[in-house]
Computed example of a mutant assay.
Amino acid sequence: MTGMTPSGTFLPSLNNPIENASFTIIDPEPLVRSGRNWTRWAGPLVSLLILVVALDQFRGLEFAHLWTMMPTATAFWVVFLLYYTAAPISEWLIFRRLWNIPVDGFGALLRKLVSNEILLGYMGEVYFYAWARRNAQITTAPFGALKDVTILSALAGNVVTLLMVAVAIPVFNALTIGAGRWDIIGSVLFVLGTSLVAMVLGKRLFTLPRAELWRVTAIHLLRIIATTILAAAMWHLLLPSVDLSWWLLLGTLRQLVSRLPFLPNKDVVFAGMTAFLIGPGNAIASVMALMASLILAAHLLVGIVLGAMELAQEGRA
């Protein structure tokens, strides 16, 4: 059976195969010392921040200009939807197995995505932790599993990034842009360094069973590969005449940007870096700016809708 210690720490359930491993996941004492009290306001507070920031940033979007550049092909919007929801879908599959989260957990994962993108990197993890602690279906202490899933996501992203960099380095030198082999060495060392730290810590760092760690890693790898292909597909649909080498280079640059911690609006940063490297008047730079605007608009729209819905629910509670 599932139970809680007097301090509010969740203990394993005998009905969940994930929890029947030879260990017990315990939340850090500072997080559970006051029980669930802090989680009652943390979730609504993050939703309020999302709503305020989204409404403020929405005013800065140039809707008239964006509308004139809006793609009309149905295929593009199908790919865009798959691209945008890939992360929350993959995480829902992970936490569905770990915690048996309900369908509405997908909405919480969307809020997690938006929090990370328009507020601050890893703010979404704070929100999702609070949501997990408040959800009656969660029978284990969520901190350990959430930590493992987050670290494995970063490691999987680093592996894919390093592989893409290895393939794309010749392209950096072959194409006429403002960057070459040595311009990316710092980013590569950063990515490699964080991966090595996680590998060295190993058993001290992770709490889930080894089989679950591999399963989570596989889902993350599939998600990263899928989003990379989907992003390239969207770029190709917008500019079908552009050589594949450009999409390889830009996909690698996008992966490098995605590895930067605590950085919101990564797509906007990526678009700015693209314009800097190949020139703001280039068609590719225009497409990257369009994509950044569309993704930001999607974040803001989802943030406004979901933030308002959660605050309304809290008001009725």
Rank of each mutant, 00 (worst) to 15 (best):
G3V: 06
G8K: 08
T9C: 06
N15V: 06
N15E: 13
I18F: 11
I25L: 15
E29S: 15
R33N: 08
G35C: 03
G43C: 07
V46H: 10
D56N: 13
D56C: 01
Q57E: 12
L61G: 00
A64C: 09
A64M: 13
T72C: 00
T74V: 14
F76V: 00
V78F: 06
V79G: 03
L82W: 07
E91A: 11
W92Y: 07
I94A: 05
F95P: 04
L110E: 06
L110Y: 06
R111Q: 08
K112N: 03
L113R: 13
L119H: 02
Y122N: 13
F128Q: 13
A132T: 02
N135P: 00
T140N: 15
A141C: 03
S153P: 00
S153Y: 04
N158T: 06
A166G: 09
A168W: 11
D183E: 02
I185G: 02
V197F: 01
M199I: 13
V200R: 11
K203V: 10
K203E: 15
E212S: 13
W214A: 14
R215D: 07
T217V: 07
A226T: 14
A233C: 12
W235Y: 12
L237T: 00
W246R: 01
W246H: 11
L249T: 02
L250S: 07
G251C: 09
L253Q: 10
V257S: 05
R259I: 07
K266N: 08
G279E: 12
M288N: 10
M288Q: 12
M291C: 05
A297T: 09
A298L: 05
Q313Y: 08
